[in-house]
Amino acid sequence: MWRLPRRMEEIALLVYGRGRREVEVAEELGVSRQAVNKALKEARGRLAEMFLSLAEILDADIVKVDVKRGYAVLRLRQLGEKAYVVYVPQKGPRILFERGVELEGGRASYQEVVEAALKWGLIREAKDLGKALRELIAMMES
């Protein structure tokens, strides 16, 4: 439930992350355009389900969900602070807590989130981890 099938993920990242056309991706992967379209629809549905489940588990309100770009912004009811969720390919959703990012923005454990954000096309570069995280959160907050 917490991960997309590899092929589906690959298609979603190519179309939504890199902005490739469905027809090009279909040719590249040797499948029909309908298959690509179906995979994209299913990926969106699964991501929506993931973010909904996470909101339930964390007892959070959903502030924003973008199933085309694999992320969500939640507000934790108990703490009142925000949590940023990014779907990391082949690993599943990863959560960044608002206060955690402010305090430990440079921590290496955030690397995979930043790399995933690059793949989804959420940020442009990730040379400086702290800067990339700030850019990622600013994007999610706009």
């Binding site: 969106r44 502030v63 924003k64 969900v65 973008d66 199933v67 085309k68 912004v73 507000r75």
Partner: peptide
């Protein structure tokens, strides 16, 4: 029929309707 993104613009730090 095909919603890909949904958000409460008032809750976003940089959410502006004009965008």
């Amino acid at each position: 029929s095909d919603v890909v993104s949904v958000f409460n613009v008032n809750e976003l730090r940089r959410g502006k309707l004009v965008k």
